[in-house]
Design a binder for these strands. Structure first.
Length: 590
RNA sequence: GGUGAUGUAGCUCAGUGGUAGAGCAGGGGACUCAUAAGCCCUUGGUCGCGUGUUCGACUCACGCCAUCACCA
């Protein structure tokens, strides 16, 4: 049994999840995690809502509420989205927990102790009216490059150049009229990233055989020339640095957000009653290939997850007071094994119209058309190699023409013949013909080929291989035509029974092969086949208690999950779960 | 401006230094167990543009254009 830690990008709790987010990180990680569970591995999949940062404060100000209220609203929406779509996090938490705050402050302390942080003065825009330093994006002024007079402090929308707010000509406060802005010096901590240069380069050197080339090339090029980076910010909503007399200084949101992979694993260990279990992942020996950490992200996050996060882990070495399993002079934290970053799912050409039932909101779509319709199409167009395009027509086509026609209909046509002609029990086969054996052999081989693709995080390819098997099964049934055979006397009836047994056995296998992609449908097929136990466990939300505040988390209970990544062992005589019914809803377009 | 990627049939995508592939859509057919789903046959492409290397390039090199992301 391997230990697989599936880390998923932390969504910013400032808006709902659209299909692009789902196809980018959440669905691929869930497919992968479900597959690894079926393989019998110990899987922990973690993530949470990123609750800090300026945009949430801005939104709270605008809505006359608190940052906490804003992020908690979206956090709950996210929880609902994951549950509806069946994204099975072992723990989905957020960054406003005591656990996360405490470990983030430890991160600061550890980096400081190990000589990776140093203080330095930085010039910043200060608001006299608000008596605080302003984030770059809240400053507006004339672009020094193109002269556009409404450039933001972080970037000019007209010429596209990135800016520093102090470069702006005639800077203004975007939120406060007639404010007086001054350039003042603020002391901040900077991260000596170049110090980890060698470690990072060495880390990236062994990845050629399995990292996606676009990810590896990008990371290597950036790692060639590393610069120090700001580690703190003047923020009102964030995690204060553990330094006396430093009010208003917080850890730069990015660094504590990536730390969430570690803090969520620690929280998972705590809430599952095994507080030391996180060490079995994060303190595993570097050469222990039975422990693997994966980071599922979108392409905009590649830098942070292939270079910078590694730098933090190298710099921290281990947590404060945590008994380190190796000498202090060696890097201790286990580094990510793979970072299968996806490109973007775009929807530029799609007309957005609610009256036509066209939505890009993942929760909305899943509620309207069912989670598996969304999961199936998003896997078909998953942007693994390049940007892909969402299209509503494509979505309908995939559901009606493939999920329903090739997989749902395969189960339906087979099981209903068994129901009507064989008393609702899997028929006893007689001698298997060459065609029978060939199809069964294909279905058994699929566990190898599909499994290899899934293990290498080539999910589209994996799904296409499964669909190929379903097509092969449909061809088999058409060629064998059991509905004809059964009309040709006792021998014919026996032969038809064998054909339907073979088909049912392959459907049984397909219900496992398809299950990482469309789990809800596959559970339903298995119920029709007469199985009493589910493939997967259950999701539930739970209020987790800490000393000063509670937080709502999503959990996963794998007890009772009976799914195994192995070919069908369907027993003749097994009774079906009832009269077969169509399991995939057809999407009717007016 | 720099870096990394992407650009192949109407759509979604495979692919290889040697006469262009699949699925879907479109067209035709045989069947009828099945949510008119499934099966068989079939029409579609000067492989972004240009130059070079080569006996031969969609595949290699260089340049350009377009799109995306990141960094300055």
């Amino acid at each position: 049994m391997d230990n697989i830690l599936v880390c998923v990008a932390w969504p910013y709790a400032n808006g709902d999840q659209h299909v692009g987010h789902i196809a980018g990180a959440y669905l691929p990680s869930d497919i992968f995690a479900r597959f690894q569970r079926l393989k019998g591995n110990r899987v922990v999949m973690v993530s949470g809502s990123d609750s800090h940062g300026t945009p949430i404060v801005v939104r709270a100000d605008k809505e006359g509420t608190t940052p906490r209220a804003v992020f908690e609203h979206f956090h709950e929406r996210f929880l609902q989205t994951w549950q509806t779509l069946g994204i099975t996090f072992d723990l989905y938490t957020h960054t406003d927990t005591e656990n996360h705050h405490a470990i983030a402050q430890q991160m600061f302390t550890r980096l400081q102790e190990n000589g990776y942080l140093y203080p330095a003065k930085q010039k910043q825009i200060f608001s006299v009216k608000q008596q605080k330093f302003l984030p770059d994006r809240l400053v507006e002024g004339t672009c020094p490059i193109c002269g556009y007079d409404k450039a933001r402090g972080d970037q000019c929308d007209t010429c596209g150049n990135l800016l520093d707010a102090i470069q702006l000509i005639n800077p203004r406060n975007r939120n406060v009229e007639n404010d007086t802005l001054e350039i003042r010096e603020s002391e901040h901590y900077f991260w000596d990233l170049p110090k980890s240069s060698e470690d990072i380069t060495h880390y990236l050197s062994g990845k050629d055989s399995y990292w996606r080339p676009q990810v590896l090339n990008f990371a290597r090029n950036f790692a060639k020339d590393l610069n120090p980076r700001a580690f703190t910010r003047d923020l009102t909503w964030g995690i204060p640095i553990p330094v006396p007399n430093s009010e208003g200084k917080c850890i730069y949101v990015w660094w504590e957000a990536v730390l969430g992979y570690l803090t969520a694993t620690v929280e998972w260990a705590k809430v599952t009653g095994q507080p030391e279990a996180w060490k079995e992942f994060w303190y595993a020996q570097p050469d222990d290939n039975r422990v693997k950490i994966y980071n599922f992200i979108g392409k905009d996050n590649i830098l942070f997850h292939t270079v910078l996060w590694q730098g933090i882990l190298f710099g921290m070495q281990h947590l404060v007071g945590a008994d380190a399993p190796r000498p202090d002079d060696a890097p201790i934290f286990k580094q990510p094994y793979d970072v299968p970053a996806n490109q973007y799912l775009n929807f530029g050409g799609q007309k957005f119209s609610k009256s036509l039932g066209v939505s890009l909101d993942a929760l909305d779509l899943a509620q309207k058309y069912g989670p598996d319709a969304v999961r199936f199409y998003l896997t078909k167009v998953m942007p693994e190699q390049r940007d892909a395009e969402w299209s509503f027509d494509g979505f309908v086509q995939a559901n009606n023409g493939e999920l329903l026609a090739k997989w749902g209909n395969l189960a339906q046509r087979t099981l209903s013949q068994i129901w009507k002609n064989f008393g609702g029990a899997i028929p006893q086969p007689s001698e298997l013909t060459e065609a029978d054996q060939a199809l069964i052999a294909s279905s058994e081989r699929a566990f190898e080929t599909v499994g290899e693709a899934l293990n290498n995080v080539r999910l589209r390819e994996a799904l296409n291989l499964v669909i190929e098997l379903a097509t092969e099964a449909n061809v088999y049934i058409d060629q064998q035509a059991p509905w004809k055979m059964i009309k040709t006397g006792d021998e014919g009836r026996a032969r038809a029974g064998t054909q339907l047994y073979v088909a049912a056995r392959v459907i049984d296998s397909l219900s496992v092969l398809f299950s990482p992609f469309v789990p809800h449908l596959c559970e339903a097929v298995r119920a029709q086949l007469g199985y009493a136990t589910p493939l997967f466990g259950k999701q539930y939300t739970q209020l987790e208690h800490e000393a000063t505040r509670d937080h709502l988390a999503l959990r996963y209970d794998g007890d009772g999950a009976a799914g195994r990544w192995q070919p069908s062992q369907l027993a003749p005589g097994q009774r079906l779960g009832g009269e077969p019914k169509g399991l995939v809803a057809k999407i009717e377009v007016k």
